[in-house]
């Protein structure tokens, strides 16, 4: 059974491109457009990895990660933060919240796949 990755970003096109890459590598993909949307979709699922942007409307990435880490079924789930080079502080904040992996924007699909492969296999 393929493993599922949740992609949380307010950019539909980013979600789509990442989705194409991940599906191509054999993962199932679940999309959410911000933290709140993600939280509403995550319960009752089996998600093996979460990829989340930081700056999103409604609920930002840091708050979302903190919420996820509180959930019994996701507290050990690896999370990749999408950070920006100028946002070292955000990256630290994300790591403190429990998102230990990161990919720096802008990135190419292959870089995302490499980061994912270091964490889970399809």
């Amino acid at each position: 059974m393929a493993k599922t990755i949740m992609v949380v970003d307010d950019s539909a096109s980013l979600r789509q491109v990442v989705g194409i890459a991940l599906k191509g590598a054999g993962f199932d993909v679940l999309e959410a457009c911000d933290g709140r949307d993600a939280l509403s979709k995550i319960t009752g699922q089996k998600i093996h990895l979460i990829i989340s942007d930081v700056n999103m409307p409604n609920m930002d990435g840091i708050s979302f990660v903190k919420e996820v880490k509180k959930m019994a079924s996701y507290k050990f789930t690896p999370i990749i933060m999408l950070t920006t080079e100028s946002q070292e502080a955000k990256k630290q904040e994300g790591q403190a919240a429990g998102a230990k992996a990161w990919v720096v924007k802008p990135f190419q699909p292959a870089q995302m796949l490499a980061a994912v492969s270091k964490l889970i296999m399809p």
Partner: peptide
């Protein structure tokens, strides 16, 4: 603040996704 942030985010998003498409 959120309105100003939304404007920043718009540029950020356009940039981030542009990178994905090369």
């Amino acid at each position: 603040d959120e309105t100003v942030n939304a404007m920043f985010r718009a540029a950020h998003t356009i940039k981030g996704s542009a990178g994905l498409f090369g």
